[in-house]
Design a protein around this nucleic acid. Sequence first.
DNA 1: ATGCTGATTGTCT
DNA 2: GACAATCAGCATT
Length: 233
Amino acid sequence: MKVNKEKNIFKDFFKQDTVTLAKSLLGKLLIVKSGENILSGYITETEAYLGIIDKACHSYKGKRTPKVEALYGKGGTVYIYTMHTHKMLNIVACEKGNPQAVLIRGIEPLDGLGIMETNRGKTGILVSNGPGKLTKAVGINDKFNMSEITVINRNENVQKINENILYIDFEMSKEPKKIMKSPRIGIPDKGIWTRKFLRFYVNGNKYVSGMKKGDFSEKCWKEKNYKIKFKKS
DNA sequence: ATGCTGATTGTCT
DNA sequence: GACAATCAGCATT
């Protein structure tokens, strides 16, 4: 049965270790509903936050406050972090109680580009080439915190998409030609945790933060859609 | 009640 | 590349 199949995919996919999940999420289609509009985009950039051992992670040393409670949920839980009025979208990885997550830092718009431009007051890559930008573009806010990401087939089930829920579509996904790594952005003075290569992005994609024009490539995705594959935990 | 911090963005040089 | 804007959450007084 289709639904069960999707549930199984969901369960195993988000239980993957955080670095694997961060890389696996590149190219996946993220979908939300805003009013009557469907807004979506392919994930272009992510960062892994490795939980209680990671000085840059909000759950470092097991810190547990109402703000970070979502991190302790099961894989696929949505964690929204507010910084300087900007909302940042994370998806929890690993098993319940292991507070690791993947930060989504960029998307390539697919559905509802016009709405996103209006939401942002900007056009082009400025619509969604940063963690605070993409959440504003698609209207992700605190209502999403602690919710669970839902697997859906956008082409077959558009009518089932509701507001305040984050969706992911595996079948509409793209596969990056090449995944690049770098240290995470904006993490000063945290020793090795500043320097570790825990940021991942699609080589040449325009909607990656800090990308230079000279590095843009229209052919950053593989031609064909591919089969879903991932490690079982 | 007060102070500090920060996984950012936008603007200006 | 530097810096101001701006605010929720948490720790401290």
